[in-house]
Design a protein around this nucleic acid. Structure first.
Length: 353
DNA sequence: TAGGCGTGGTG
DNA sequence: TCACCAAGCCT
């Protein structure tokens, strides 16, 4: 890792980072005031929401959840569909299902008190190595090593780790552990993430403002933007389908619930065809009810591993039309647990075209 | 263990 | 427009 030209760099010290953090820490809804230990419920809730999700996206959801579910008992006692409705639009819906399952376990088996060690936290639904370490460090001041995408970037640059992600993870974890201090481990974890989010960014890092700029091997070589090294990624295929917006004269819309697990598991959708690898024809395929379906346009959406083009069809029905098997008429579409892709279908269906 | 699993912001 | 990517977890 260290070439002769960089061997002279001194090791990065946690005190330099903590001093920077004390001046430049971000003020976030889930953070306790300086010197206070945060509420484990809030820390856990925020960490679940922040998995692969930006601070800006999670913020409003966090506040809404806290209002509707002020503690772990309120969350555990709520029906899953209430949780899914509040989560709708945030993505990765297995998080919401696991969030609810975790709340039930904590409420019923731990008396509503979150366990304080990494190992115990790791055993809970939806809590993996990152979240277990983050909650232990931030809410319980345990000296856990927290490694997320920010930390991977910071550490890979500090030590110029040539190995590619994801294979480099074990090495990065060991290096991160050598940096983690016994004192203020929670602040240190949040400082690492703040540094990665505001200074040591993926592109155009602001090295001149970094408290570790004299300790960074990548910067010493002028190669900071080329870390972390990453394996080439595969391209994303496109799938095609038909979606059917059936509306009664009183405004009710025909909906159904997806299977409990898998893509958009447990969420609500309008009826549609299966999603195929090749483009479907222009004629409506597998409509839920017979009608003169009108083409309204295309809803395009990108999931994590494929893109989707849904041809949207619309038809109206009388108020006495019985719903097909597995479907229901909803008069409150806005309150249903519709994922983002279905909101796009709705927009196309309600457009003038 | 590598792939499944959402969505929105950014340069 | 498009590629990248954001406080990952589960199987």
């Amino acid at each position: 890792m260290s070439s002769p030209s960089t061997a002279a760099l001194s090791e990065p010290g946690s005190s330099d980072l903590l001093a920077w953090y004390d001046c430049h820490r971000r003020r976030l809804p889930w953070r306790a005031l300086p010197g206070e230990i945060a509420d484990p419920y809030r820390v856990w809730l925020s960490e679940i929401m922040l998995q692969q999700t930006t601070v800006a996206a999670a913020g409003p959801y966090f506040l809404a959840f806290l209002q509707r579910f002020p503690d772990v008992f309120a969350l555990a006692d709520a029906p899953l569909d209430d949780v899914l409705r509040r989560w709708a639009g945030l993505g990765y819906y297995a998080r919401a299902r696991n969030l609810h399952a975790c709340a039930v376990v904590v409420a019923r088996e731990h008396g509503g008190v979150f366990p304080g060690t990494e190992a115990e936290l790791l055993a809970l639904p939806g809590i993996g190595p990152y979240t277990a370490a983050a909650v232990a460090a931030i809410a319980f001041d345990e000296p856990a090593t927290v490694v997320d995408g920010n930390v991977e970037r910071v550490v890979s640059r500090l030590f110029a780790v040539e190995e590619e992600l994801p294979r480099a993870r074990p090495r990065i974890r060991k290096l991160a552990a050598t940096l983690t201090p016994a004192r203020r481990p929670g602040d240190f974890a949040q400082a690492m993430m703040d540094l990665g989010a505001t200074i040591c960014t993926p592109r155009r890092p602001a090295c001149s403002l970094c408290p570790w700029n004299e300790n960074c091997e990548a910067r010493a070589e002028g190669l900071q933007e080329s870390f972390p090294r990453k394996a080439a990624k595969v391209d994303r295929p496109t799938r095609f389908g038909h979606a059917f917006w059936a509306e009664r004269t009183d405004g009710a819309v025909l909906l159904r619930r997806r299977a409990a697990t898998g893509l958009l598991g447990g969420m609500v959708e309008v009826p549609g065809s299966a999603w195929a690898e090749t483009s479907l024809g222009g004629l409506p395929e597998n409509p839920p009810l017979p009608s003169n379906w009108q083409p309204m346009g295309t809803a395009r959406h990108v999931f994590s591993h494929f893109a989707l083009e849904l041809s949207v069809f619309r038809a109206t029905f009388t108020n006495d039309t019985p719903p097909p098997e597995g479907c229901w008429w909803s008069l409150e579409v806005e309150k249903e647990a519709l994922p983002g892709v279905m909101r796009k279908v709705e927009k196309v269906a309600r457009s003038a075209g």
